[in-house]
Design a protein around this nucleic acid. Structure first.
Length: 336
DNA sequence: CTCCTGCTGG
DNA sequence: CCAGCGGGAG
């Protein structure tokens, strides 16, 4: 693609501006800047799938205090895992994360693999999460592709909105094309920098407020990935990008061209939520959490959903997902 | 109404 | 490739 050809030449001034912006405005999230283990990074990524990071922070902090590593999570009762997931949403993620923990504990001696293919083979870990762990936790040079990065790169370098659906081959090519090279003499590598190794007893996920950005140095590719994503999350947002405060405003082809088709080509339309099975499923699960693991008679759930057919369908789907158990008497409870 | 660091099974 | 999956905040 001819655009990617010229894209890399434009990256240096963009990188300088973006890194400066990152050093000033990066959110001080507790799993950033070398304050947690690769496992802690993975937990943060899974929790952040389709969920705002600001909502994730308290859940992540509590979770990592209870289960600081894969082995401890692997041994936990499911009911406790589902309860600790709280109202983060998509609770199947919690069970997959525990399955993931069991595989990491059992197959990899409680050390998260530093290998994309091994990561992406784990439950609940797709291309994005595997790439994010490789980049953010291990400092490996790999293009991270999520909706934010796709939107930002497409706007800045191609001048148009990213397409809906899965990432195209061109989008992946662009992400690799503009990804900074690592390994320069001033680039502190993963080995001797703070890019963390597993097993440190002092970094079990509780953020040390004294550890600041200034003491942390990651490879340029990892910083690039995080900074592009951060820009997409806080400035270069989908509908109303804040171009007036954007550090890349002077280098953005999309802005120069007058924001053509702003908001078009977006991802697939969101599903409605009110009155859907998802809402009912959430209400059922919340009721079971509040029962503290004790069985709940089915009739007690009737107020949650007037439609009995829907209620039964949701109970059945939660059962299939392994998110609840149905007793002999038909009562419901969180699984063991 | 919109959006949000996706992943999985059909 | 598509539908389904939570919930909160703007």
């Amino acid at each position: 693609m001819e655009n990617a050809e010229t894209a890399f030449a434009k990256t240096e001034p963009i990188r300088l501006r973006l890194f400066d912006w990152w050093s000033r405005y990066a959110r001080d999230l507790p799993w950033r800047f070398g304050r947690t283990t690769p496992w802690g990074v993975l937990v943060s990524e899974v929790m952040s799938q389709q969920t705002q990071m600001s909502r994730v922070v308290p859940y992540w902090t509590a979770w990592m205090k209870i289960w600081p590593d894969a082995a401890s999570l692997a041994a936990a009762p499911k009911a406790e895992v589902i309860t600790a997931w709280g109202r983060l949403g998509y609770p199947r993620r919690a069970l997959r994360l525990q399955e993931c923990a069991q595989q990491v504990a059992g197959q990899y001696a409680d050390r998260l693999p530093r290998d994309y293919d091994q990561l992406v083979a784990l439950p609940g870990i797709g291309d994005y999460t595997a790439s994010a762990v490789m980049s953010f936790a291990y400092g490996e040079r790999i293009a991270v592709i999520d909706t934010n990065i796709r939107r930002v790169l497409s706007r800045v370098f191609l001048g148009h909105e990213s397409t809906g659906g899965a990432a195209s081959r061109e989008e992946r090519q662009l992400a690799w094309q503009v990804l900074p090279e690592d390994g320069g003499p001033e680039d502190i590598g993963a080995e001797d920098s703070g890019v963390q190794e597993d097993g440190g007893s002092g970094r079990l996920g509780l953020a040390d407020p004294k550890v600041r950005l200034a003491a942390w140095r990651e490879p340029p590719s990892a910083r690039w990935n995080q900074a592009v994503m951060e820009l997409g999350a806080t400035v270069c947002i989908a509908r109303k990008p804040a171009c007036d405060i954007c550090p890349l405003a002077g280098h953005c082809r999309f802005l120069k061209d007058g924001l053509p088709g702003l908001g078009a080509g977006r991802t697939r339309p969101r599903q409605r939520f009110a009155g859907t099975d998802r809402q009912v499923r959430g209400a059922i699960l919340q009721a079971l959490r509040q029962a503290s693991g004790a069985p709940v008679p089915r009739k007690d759930l009737k107020p949650l959903c007037k439609d009995e057919i829907r209620l039964d369908r949701c109970i059945a789907s939660l059962d299939e997902d392994g998110l609840l158990e149905i007793g002999q008497d038909g009562s419901l409870s969180l699984p063991r």
